[in-house]
Design a protein around this nucleic acid. Sequence first.
DNA 1: GCATTTGACTTTATTAATGAAAGGAGTTAA
DNA 2: TTAACTCCTTTCATTAATAAAGTCAAATGC
Lengths: 136, 136
Amino acid sequence: MIDNTDMRILNELSMNSRLTMKELGKKVHLTGPAVSTRVAKLEEQGVIEGYSIKVNQVKLGYFVHAFITIITESTYHQPYLSFIKMQKQYIINNYKISGDGCYLLECKFPSNEILNDFLNDLNEHANYKLSIIIDI
Amino acid sequence: MIDNTDMRILNELSMNSRLTMKELGKKVHLTGPAVSTRVAKLEEQGVIEGYSIKVNQVKLGYFVHAFITIITESTYHQPYLSFIKMQKQYIINNYKISGDGCYLLECKFPSNEILNDFLNDLNEHANYKLSIIIDI
DNA sequence: GCATTTGACTTTATTAATGAAAGGAGTTAA
DNA sequence: TTAACTCCTTTCATTAATAAAGTCAAATGC
């Protein structure tokens, strides 16, 4: 179903999703229309879920990038889930996990002060373990 | 420097980075050329770091998505770093962290068997704690 | 206070890409 | 052998991108 050419298309689009079909075609040795129908198929199949940009969060004023392992005291997760719904601006991802904790929360903050405020509020709904990202 | 219109542009492109400049312009109430120069500036400033796609890893045969907290025994991280360089196909991100562990490794695997093999090999270079993602 | 500069935009015109349609080559199956 | 199918290329009409020129308003300087 998905052949090598498709994999190369996915690779190229991962690196630059704004390539024209002509440029993309050149990279995988196909014409524009040929690669265009392949991309359309990958979209229909749901292999390509969407097109996005990588934003430099530091340049937007988010200097702290953190992962927070969430340990809810009770089996009732709703208060925590409601809380993070209200804190959307700081949340990148909230993964439900098995292992150490219930959730793994990826977030960004403008400063340690705001992170601190966030943690204080979070602590009313769950316990946590904090990991701050130093480098990628 | 970055005004409200720029934020809206970033938002729109985050949701769909393949919008034409004309379409994008319509969404933020500008003409194509106007929005095009704004996007070019955001690129020059490094706010937009790149254009990418969201790939459905399950449809590519990667059924297991995991975060692995890495605890290296020694201060000498090189063996671990060399190891993951060889395992690129499974690695999504390797974050250097402060907190619980030295690194937080985000990865994907076709099956638990392959994850198991990976962990066995990993164990020669570092200790770990495994968190498997159940849901986003 | 007025002229000038600057920056951000629109309009226009040229160039380039997209997308639809037709046609060809290779493969499979009756 | 022929028919049907898939995947591709070529061609062409439509649409978008891009460069250049012009407009306007706000800021700057004399």
